[in-house]
Amino acid sequence: MDLQRPRSAYNLVQMVQLASELGLPLARCLEGSGVDERRLSEAEAEFSGHAEIAVIANIVRHLDHVPALGLRMGQRFHMSAYGLMAFALCSCQTVGDATRLAMRYGALSFSLTATRLDIVGGDARIWLEDGHVPVPLRRFVIERDLVGLTNIGREMFSSTLPMRHIALAYPAPAYAADYARYLGLVPEFSAPQQQIVFDRAVMESPIPQADAVMLRRCEQQLQVLLERRKAGTGTAGRVRQFLRRQPGMAVADMAAASAELQIQPRSLRRSLQAEGVSFRALADELRQSLAEELLLVPQLSVEDVAHRLGYDEVASFTRAFKRWTGLPPGKWRSLRLRGLR
């Protein structure tokens, strides 16, 4: 699992809310994570997996005395954690199809645990991989993810999927008996491999809401979201995130990006070149994307769009837009709204 990749702020919000209820101030939760608490309330906010791990480390360090902390945290996660993917999962033909789809787009889910499905004889085995998680945090992450996934499965399929066996690598905690209340059974602890075992028939169970057309539509959008998440990695990804936060992208400059990212301008330029892009190309890419989105809002004039992008003169915006698309913004909008492009 790539911890550099952006992840939804939903994960952090759920965790810091419970931590706050347990007496841990927000500032202590976010300490050293690089997360700006003001951005937690933004609907589209995203943070790296490394930031999420840092927040988890703070919560575990300060609240490790709370029994079953990871299990309790998992209860905070529901279908809303899956967003668009929830519709896709409910549209699959079988539980097995839904499981494979969830794994295929796992980077879009709340889970930090990597998974793999094997069908062997009468068993369906989901292997759990947490090697990318620091050892002191693995129990918390596994507990959170197992309970969260159990909740989501119950909400999607109107019943708990019957697990026959759970094997976990870490030793049994003092509250081991509590697992039955959250998961329906007590796992095997100190196991050589981590897995959840279902009867194969569970994976072959049909999903009542199956809809092939809806599934295709959802998968198309999920693929777009996945590509956007992938584009958020590396130096180029950090620059993209910086540019998205700028109120006037027309005047965004490398010096400001260098200062915020704490990278010398020359080093930033070299890093971007190594990834096959330039600062100007990234800025133009995002300006064009935002310009096209705004131009599709009929209530906004071309002048409004230009000003929202930070251009002082409409003529400057028009020249830039023609360089990006080959068309002036008014003509592009007319053709797109008529469905000719």
Rank of each mutant, 00 (worst) to 15 (best):
R5G: 07
L12D: 03
L12E: 04
V13Y: 04
M15F: 12
V16N: 13
Q17W: 11
L22H: 06
R28C: 07
R28W: 08
C29S: 14
G34A: 09
D36F: 06
E37I: 11
R38Y: 06
S41I: 14
E42T: 04
E42K: 15
E44T: 04
A45L: 08
E46H: 15
H50W: 07
E52M: 10
I53T: 12
A57F: 07
N58E: 15
V60F: 03
R61S: 13
L69N: 01
G74E: 08
Q75T: 15
F77M: 12
M79P: 00
A81H: 02
Y82C: 01
Y82H: 00
G83A: 04
M85K: 01
C92Q: 08
T94F: 02
G96Q: 01
A98Y: 07
T99W: 05
L101T: 08
M103K: 02
R104P: 03
Y105R: 10
Y105D: 06
G106N: 05
A107F: 03
S109K: 00
L112Y: 14
A114H: 04
T115K: 15
L117N: 01
D118F: 04
V120M: 06
D123G: 02
D123R: 15
A124R: 05
A124Q: 02
R125L: 15
E129F: 14
D130N: 14
H132E: 02
H132G: 01
R138V: 13
E143D: 15
G148L: 08
G148E: 11
T150P: 02
I152Y: 08
G153T: 13
M156R: 09
T160R: 11
T160A: 12
H165P: 02
A167C: 10
L168S: 03
Y170F: 13
Y170L: 11
P173W: 12
P173C: 09
Y175Q: 14
Y175C: 12
A177M: 11
D178Q: 14
Y179C: 00
L183M: 14
L183I: 06
L185M: 15
P187F: 07
F198L: 11
D199G: 15
R200C: 08
E204V: 05
E204A: 14
P206G: 01
Q209Y: 05
Q209P: 14
A210W: 00
V213G: 09
M214E: 11
R216H: 08
R217L: 12
C218H: 13
L222S: 12
E227P: 03
E227F: 06
A231T: 05
G232P: 04
G232C: 12
G232H: 14
T235N: 05
R238H: 06
F242D: 02
R244D: 00
A252V: 07
A252T: 05
D253Q: 13
A255W: 03
A256T: 11
S258R: 13
S258C: 10
L261W: 07
Q262H: 13
R266I: 08
R269V: 02
R270A: 10
R270H: 11
R270I: 07
S271I: 04
S271Q: 15
L272V: 12
A274E: 15
R280K: 06
D284I: 09
R287G: 00
S289E: 14
L290E: 07
A291L: 03
E293N: 09
L294A: 02
L296C: 05
L296M: 15
V297W: 03
L300H: 06
A306I: 01
R308P: 02
G310T: 06
V314F: 00
F317A: 00
P329Q: 10
L335G: 02
R336C: 03
R336E: 03
R338G: 04
